[in-house]
Design a protein around this nucleic acid. Structure first.
Lengths: 340, 340
DNA sequence: CCTCGCTGAGTAAACGATTACTCATCCTGG
DNA sequence: CCAGGATGAGTAATCGTTTACTCAGCGAGG
């Protein structure tokens, strides 16, 4: 049973130098001789010294921790981004506090108060609802995917998103090229810029291909569950149908796929299907799903680096970064069957 | 732009009482008059006071934060448990630091050092590899699913797991009852008690049904990916086959399902299939998957409550809790088709 | 030989909150 | 009328680190 953890003062006593010097050696800050350094470092190791971050944070008012605010960690897309964020931040010896808001304003508010209390050095908003942003308008922040309207004029933040308009365009082109003419979109809510841009890109591509605007039917769904996709697809199919369907999230597409097959519809024979995010379930379904891929790894890496830059007081190179996306073609639009 | 956050001292100045009294009001600790209380509380609200957790933690040596160590947050089962843990802990105004180890000992070690530095009050091990447990043997800890052998004699910890033996038994009974006689198990590694127990339960049920031990073939896989399931199923099928397959994780079962269908095998006609964890992908696959369900919500809730008890110095009611599981029957063993 | 600058290291004051003591005041019962 | 308990509130030490000052010693240039 090791001692609970020795303090800088005990190291000082052991080595016979002052606490100030020990601190200098630890932080490699200020002057000290080679011998002193060696002696102190030996003691640090030997007595298994662990810095008390509370004390350090109190004194320096900076703590190597950032908050990550995410709507739903069980959503694979969010989980991946969060994971990559964490890896990158951890590599810079920052720790992360992950806060799940479930898209609820009051929960988000409480989480933010907690983050403030912790004196975190920055906050990462993963597809964040902007509800409680006023709480921390003075903190370094990076938004992923969605930008809060209320923060427009506020200061220190950046936005990282992927090119949703392009994603929509790619989806439309694939369906059109494969011969679809009666198109339908299942879109998540009507107030989320991310999903609206996907629709806009889709519509524009359809228009460019000479389709009339009302050849594209839009259905709005209140959540991105498989069940939603299932039920919406059943309803819309019975109400007239379509031959090409674009869902702004993979889960919807998987649900739609199941529903259509239950109705005896052949995919990709009668209906072609494109999803979004290229999450793992895109591979697993009854029909492997063509989907728009965005790199969670790159998003996470860029977002982490940008936040660290802001924290360090450097102006980030770019305040607003848009990453490219690409389409992964699978069986649901008649692509090659891709295994596993 | 609000002031960065006022301190207890400023509240003291504003209200004309001492800092000690302000602190007492904040913590509802010690004595103070109704009027003082009202005046202080008003000022706290008005000036938007946020306690500095670093200072508090430094003084009290207790911080309302626990570390959650998890192998892979993008695994849905782990993500769900983590989510419920967080909800429950947050409800008790604890925050959580989630650490993803990727099953790597050195990453785990660094995470633990960080948690120690943060002076967390406890650690939650979700299906944790025990590698670096020595680092914090004196900290309150709760293990979910897996118990570290090395910690046997160490003090303050509990184990929450679900009844894996029962899960294996249920899986076997379902397959046997539906007429399967040539059984196969895809098991994740050979050194993980959780998965070993599933196999043991399965075998025992098979034995009880009068099957010879070698009527149960066991295949060990190195990870729980869909791809693994796919490839192993293809290989085993070509090497002789089976009519009932039990996978100790859903992802394996989904991969196996895809592989078998690609071979022209009918499910559940020729082969019946049971998975484990009842994650979302169990619903999504080409054939809805019969799976052993364990309640992540209950596991999370119990684990959180137990850890809080240990932190508060109370002996938890039970050191070792085993939760029941149940089987959800779907199409892959000939059950009713369950939508979405 | 004096002075100046550099080097290595110590002293002590913060940081913001908690809490053990202390104390003045007031009330009450004998 | 007084002893003593209860009450409300202030004083000051403390938690572990960082860091602005300070300073002794030494070597070199004038």
């Amino acid at each position: 049973m090791k001692p609970d953890s020795v303090s800088i003062r005990e190291i000082s006593k052991i080595t016979g130098v002052s606490v100030a010097t020990v601190s200098r050696v630890i932080n490699n800050n200020g002057r000290f001789s080679k011998e002193t350094e060696a002696r102190v470092k030996k003691a640090l190791k030997e007595y298994n010294y662990t810095p008390n971050l509370a004390a350090r944070g109190l004194r320096t008012k900076r703590i190597a921790t950032v908050g990550v605010v995410v709507p739903d960690i069980t959503n694979e897309y969010f989980a991946r981004i969060t994971l990559h964020l964490q890896e990158r931040l951890f590599a810079h010896s920052y720790s992360t506090i992950i806060c799940n808001t479930d898209e609820k304003a009051d929960i988000e508010r409480r989480h933010l108060d907690m983050l403030l209390s912790q004196q975190v050095s920055g906050v990462m908003y993963v597809s964040g609802t902007p509800h409680a942003f006023d709480r921390l308008s003075h903190l370094p922040a990076v938004f992923i995917d969605r930008e809060p309207q209320t923060a427009r004029e506020a200061g220190n933040y950046s936005l990282i998103e992927s090119d949703n308009f392009l994603g929509g365009t790619l989806a439309a082109r694939e369906l059109l090229q494969k011969g679809c003419r009666r198109l339908c979109i299942f879109k998540y809510r009507d107030d989320i810029s991310t999903h609206n841009a996907r629709e806009a890109g889709f519509r524009q591509a359809a228009r460019e291909a000479g389709l009339h605007d009302d050849a594209v039917r839009v259905e709005i769904v209140p959540d991105v569950s498989v069940r939603q996709g299932y039920e919406k697809a059943k309803a819309v199919w019975q109400a007239g149908g379509f031959d090409g369907l674009f869902c702004t999230a993979d889960a919807l597409a998987v649900g739609a796929c199941n529903a259509l097959r239950a109705e005896g519809v052949e995919i990709p024979g009668q209906v072609k299907l494109v999803g979004y995010d290229d999450t793992a379930i895109a591979h697993y379904g009854a029909v492997p799903l063509t989907s728009v891929h965005q790199s969670t790894e790159e998003i996470g890496r860029l977002a982490a680096d940008t936040l660290l830059q802001i924290i360090d007081g450097k102006q980030p190179e770019r305040r607003h970064i848009t990453l490219p996306v690409h389409l992964v073609v699978r069986a649901s639009t008649g692509g090659q069957f891709e295994e596993a």
